[in-house]
C-alpha cells in the first residue's frame, strides 16, 4: 500500500536516511524499530512529506507521491501521528479535532470520543493544559478524524506511564482489528511484539534487519541494535 524505494533524506548538510526500502501492506501492522537517532522519525516525516526526499521514491498504492506536498498526501489518506504530539495549545480539545475532521470514512468526532471517553470529558479544555496521556489520545484521535487509509505512528508510548502504554496498545490492537494498516515507529520492542506482524530495524538511517515479528523478537541482533 505504502512503499519507500531507495529513500534518502536529511537536514541541511546532514544526511539521515540512506536508501531506505520499506513496505506497508493492506491490513498489517509493521514495526519500525531503532534507537534514538536511528532515523525513525525522519523516515515518517519523509513519508508524509514534511521533509523532502533527496532521492528515491514514496509510492502510495503504486502511485508516486514523492513530489506532492504534505497536505496532498494527507488528503490521499496518509495519517501522521507525530512523536511530539503537536497539539495546538491555544485551541480546545474539540477545536483540535474539528480542524482536522474530514468526512469520507467511519471516523467522526463522536466516534473518537467513544474510543477515548476522556477526551469527551475535557473537550473544552485548552490543548496547552493536557497531561501526556491526554495529549497522546488527542493526537491519535485528531489524525483518525481525517479518516486516513493508513497510519504512521511515531513512538506513541514515549514518556507514558505503564498503564497508559497498555491503553495505547489496546487502541492500536483495536485499529488493527478494524483493518487499519499501521507503520509503528518504536524503541519499545515489548510494546510492538504483540502488535506488529512484521518489522524493520533501522540503524544510522539504513535498514539493518527485517522480517516477521516473531522472528525478530528472538533475534539477538535486534536486541543489540536496540541496545537492550
Amino acid at each position: 500500500m505504502l512503499k519507500a524505494k531507495g529513500l534518502s533524506a536529511g537536514y541541511g548538510r546532514i544526511q539521515v536516511l540512506h536508501g531506505v526500502e520499506l513496505e506497508l501492506k493492506k491490513g498489517e501492522v509493521v514495526a519500525l524499530l531503532g534507537r534514538n537517532g536511528a532515523g525513525k522519525s525522519t523516515l515518517l516525516k519523509t513519508l508524509i512529506g514534511l521533509l523532502p526526499a533527496r532521492s528515491g521514491e514514496v509510492l502510495l498504492e503504486d502511485r508516486p507521491i514523492t513530489e506532492l506536498p504534505a497536505y496532498r498526501r494527507a488528503q490521499l489518506g496518509i495519517g501522521y501521528v507525530p512523536e511530539e504530539r503537536r497539539i495546538f495549545p491555544e485551541l480546545s480539545v474539540r477545536e483540535n479535532l474539528e480542524l482536522a475532521a474530514r468526512p469520507g470514512g467511519p471516523w467522526t468526532i463522536e466516534r473518537v470520543y467513544e474510543l477515548f471517553p476522556r477526551l469527551a470529558e475535557i473537550e473544552h479544555r485548552s490543548g496547552g493544559y493536557l497531561s501526556g496521556g491526554e495529549q497522546q489520545m488527542l493526537t491519535l484521535a485528531r489524525t483518525l478524524v481525517t479518516n486516513p487509509r493508513l497510519l504512521l505512528l511515531d513512538e506513541p508510548t514515549e514518556g507514558l506511564a505503564p498503564i497508559l502504554v497498555k491503553a495505547i496498545a489496546e487502541t492500536v490492537a483495536e485499529l488493527k482489528a478494524q483493518g487499519m494498516p499501521i507503520l509503528l515507529a518504536e524503541q519499545n520492542l515489548a510494546f510492538t511484539a504483540g502488535l506488529a506482524d512484521r518489522g524493520y530495524v533501522l540503524e544510522t538511517g539504513e535498514v539493518r534487519l527485517k522480517g516477521p515479528m516473531r522472528e525478530l523478537v528472538k533475534d539477538p541482533r535486534v536486541k543489540e541494535l536496540l541496545a537492550l
Binding site: 495546538f88 485551541l91 474530514r102
Partner: peptide, 23 residues
C-alpha cells in the same frame, strides 16, 4: 472552519499541513 485553521496555523504550520489542510 477557515477561521479555525488561521488560528491553528499561527501555532503550528507544519502540523496543520500534515493533517491535510491546504496551508
Amino acid at each position: 472552519r477557515v477561521g479555525l485553521w488561521i488560528r491553528a496555523v499561527t501555532q503550528d504550520r507544519e502540523m496543520l499541513e500534515a493533517l491535510g489542510v491546504p496551508v
